[in-house]
């Protein structure tokens, strides 16, 4: 017994090392649990504060770029407003019953206070949290396209898995033919993604736009993703791999919208608790 004690004291640094590594690895593997109590992520109070300060400095420097992108988005939205259009339709006396329809998706405006694009797995931090109605697994989009999925939420901040992540897999479709596949990021260029599982009989046009399918409760249908850049097929593979130019510019991301789907819980329940991207 005494020898055992001496043994432990002599090699205590090794056992301490093992102990600390076990803690670290358990953090790594527990991070995917739905209920994980995760204080150690960028949505906690201290890191949220520090990122708010640094992002204020940064946003002042990027002010002109942000203004430009917001005014472009405003113009695009104005074009969609019905009153701006000349309508040929005459009122035939049929009224739509508003009790038969309701708004399924609502959008919460948020500011990006931390963002990386240079790693294999990238994350963003937003200045909106639980008290603003943000929940785990909500989608995040911006004026140009998709951004990511909410990972952790605290009272005032949330941490978002960027689309630029090894595990991101988003269901997307070709705009012209409506054939869908899953969109993944290869990890090299933050402007390029690839759309997998497109069958070889489909005619893929270069420059065709790619949009989301709305199969998941995360993103609404027809959110812009990008444009087809090139098409390739690996030997012996029955599917095309389509290279996409992403429409979202992740490096200048400032203002984003968190998508809240009223029917999300109902849809997950009927699908048996699975959340698919």
């Amino acid at each position: 017994m005494r020898n055992l004690g001496i043994f432990f004291i002599r090699y205590y640094s090794f056992f301490l090392f093992l102990f600390l590594e076990v803690i670290a690895f358990s953090m790594l593997f527990n991070s995917n649990n739905y209920q994980s109590a995760s204080f150690f992520n960028s949505s906690n109070k201290i890191s949220g504060k520090i990122f708010s300060i640094s992002s204020n400095v940064e946003s002042f420097i990027n002010l002109s770029i942000v203004n430009d992108s917001l005014s472009i988005e405003n113009a695009r939205l104005k074009n969609q407003v019905l009153t701006e259009r000349y309508s040929n339709k005459i009122n035939t006396g049929v009224y739509t019953d508003t009790s038969m329809s309701f708004q399924q998706y609502t959008y919460i405006q948020a500011k990006v206070i931390n963002n990386t694009i240079l790693k294999r797995n990238n994350y963003l931090t937003l200045n909106r949290g639980r008290i603003h109605g943000i929940r785990k697994n909500m989608g995040v989009i911006c004026g140009d396209g998709i951004v990511g999925i909410v990972k952790d939420v605290s009272d005032h901040y949330c941490s978002v898995i960027s689309f630029l992540h090894k595990d991101s897999r988003i269901s997307a479709q070709l705009n012209s033919s409506k054939d869908f596949g899953s969109l993944v990021w290869d990890g090299l260029n933050p402007k390029i993604a690839s759309l997998r599982d497109i069958p070889t009989h489909v005619k893929v046009k270069i420059g065709d736009s790619i949009t989301t399918t709305g199969f998941s409760s995360i993103f609404p249908e027809n959110v812009m993703v990008g444009k087809v850049n090139s098409v390739s097929q690996k030997d012996g593979d029955n599917f095309f791999e389509v290279s996409i130019n992403l429409s979202t510019n992740f490096s200048t991301l400032r203002y984003v919208y968190v998508v809240s789907d009223i029917l999300a819980d109902e849809k997950i329940k009927i699908e048996g608790g699975r959340i698919n991207d």
Binding site: F17, S31, F40, N41, S42, F51
Partner: peptide, 17 residues
């Protein structure tokens, strides 16, 4: 570092090593 970059223990593993 992990806390600030949402990397769930990756930096901790490498640093402790």
């Amino acid at each position: 570092i992990d806390t600030f970059s949402s990397t769930d223990g990756m930096h901790t593993i490498a640093c402790t090593f």
